[in-house]
C-alpha cells in the first residue's frame, strides 16, 4: 500500500460512514452517522475537506444529486467508495487489529 493511500483516523471514520450508507452517502447522513457512533458533534466543513482529500487520493468518487427546497435549491453531492478505498479501509483495520492484540489494558474488552 502506497504511503499516500494510508488513511488517518477521521478519514477512516468518513470512509466507514460512506460504506455504511451505500447509495445515500452525502454530507448530512455522513455527519449523522459519525456523530451517532462517536457521540460528538462533527463540523460539516471538516467532512467536506476530508471527502475532497479522499477524492483526490482516488478513495471515493462523487456525483451530483437532486436539489430540494429544504436545501435552498442546492444539489446534494453523493459519494461512493472505490476499490482502492475499500483496500485502504481493510489495511487500516488490519493495522489496528494487530496493534490491539496483546495490549494488556484492552484484553477482553475491558477499559
Amino acid at each position: 500500500m502506497a504511503k499516500r493511500d494510508v488513511v488517518g483516523g477521521f478519514e477512516l471514520q468518513v470512509l466507514l460512514a460512506v460504506m455504511r450508507l451505500g447509495d445515500d452517502a452525502y454530507g448530512v447522513p455522513i455527519s449523522d452517522t459519525i456523530e451517532k457512533a462517536s457521540g460528538r458533534e462533527v463540523a460539516a466543513g471538516s467532512i467536506y475537506i476530508t471527502l475532497d482529500r479522499l477524492e483526490s487520493k482516488g478513495l471515493v468518487t462523487s456525483r451530483m444529486g437532486e436539489s430540494t427546497p429544504e436545501r435552498g435549491g442546492r444539489a446534494k453531492t453523493y459519494y461512493q467508495i472505490t476499490g482502492k478505498g475499500v483496500r485502504a479501509v481493510r489495511h487500516a483495520q488490519r493495522t489496528l487489529v494487530r496493534l490491539w492484540r496483546g495490549v494488556p489494558h484492552l484484553e477482553g474488552g475491558r477499559a
Binding site: Y26, A44, G45, R74, T77
Partner: peptide, 12 residues
Amino acid sequence: KRHSLVGDLHEQ
C-alpha cells in the same frame, strides 16, 4: 463543494 455544504447546512 461549497454549494453542497451550504445545502447540507440549510437541510439541517
